[in-house]
Amino acid sequence: MKILLATSKRYARLLLDAIGDVRPKPKIIILSLDEEVAILAKNLGIEYRSDLTIERLYTSEELEEYDLAIIAMDDDQDNIVLARVAKSMNIPIIISILNNTANRDLLIREGVHYIVDVNEFTVNTIKTIFISDTWVAIKLSGIVNLVVALHRIVRRGILGITLAEIEEVIREENVKFMLLEKGGRVVTDASKTIETGDIIVVTGIEDDVRKAMDSIERIFRKHEEIFARRYAETFRIATRG
């Protein structure tokens, strides 16, 4: 296998780690403008080229022999241009890093087969740490649209929803579902009430996960309405009394 690696210093080590397990050992060529990458390539005995001008790349016939192009530059405009070159070289598989989620369509236009969105992964992973009572969905793989959606319960822990209620609506969906307790143990008792600190996890193909999230969200909304009505009623009685 021949792999063309167009990378900035920010992604070079990461990509070399990623392709380190490929067997048999592939032939790699690294294209980069950064001296740090040149040193890395030299020490690993990998062929290196620093001339990334479009005119030069378009006339490099040897690039046409490559089976896979992995493009990972710091700016999306460079990823777009290099994807265009790789496409014109008829490289059969093109993978590109996406730095800004909003530029995804431009990479698709250039014929990139797999887009790895670092931005989305980072943003959503940060969100899972401190955002509660709302869904955070993280895309896991480029081959299938596998998504893990997490919902960390804090305020919604007072609503009194049981695991059985959620299981009932989720049964019809094409997803895997689990409820994790504070300690990380998977809850199996359907009569258990969802409490503060629990985490709902839904895994599956993106569209299915979105549907499942909507179904669960409807249960939460229904209970929130009931709770709000009860609270208003109690408040009314208390002020009258």
């Binding site: 479009i54 700016d75 999306d76 405009q77 777009i80 241009v81 369509d105 431009l106 236009r109």
Partner: peptide, 24 residues
């Protein structure tokens, strides 16, 4: 027409370089 979002935002000077790279 295709929309490109600049990183980092508010760098008007950089968008000229980005534009020159995007077109042929």
């Amino acid at each position: 027409i295709p929309l490109y979002l600049l990183d980092p935002p508010y760098s008007r000077g950089k968008l000229f370089v980005v534009g020159a790279k995007l077109v042929q």
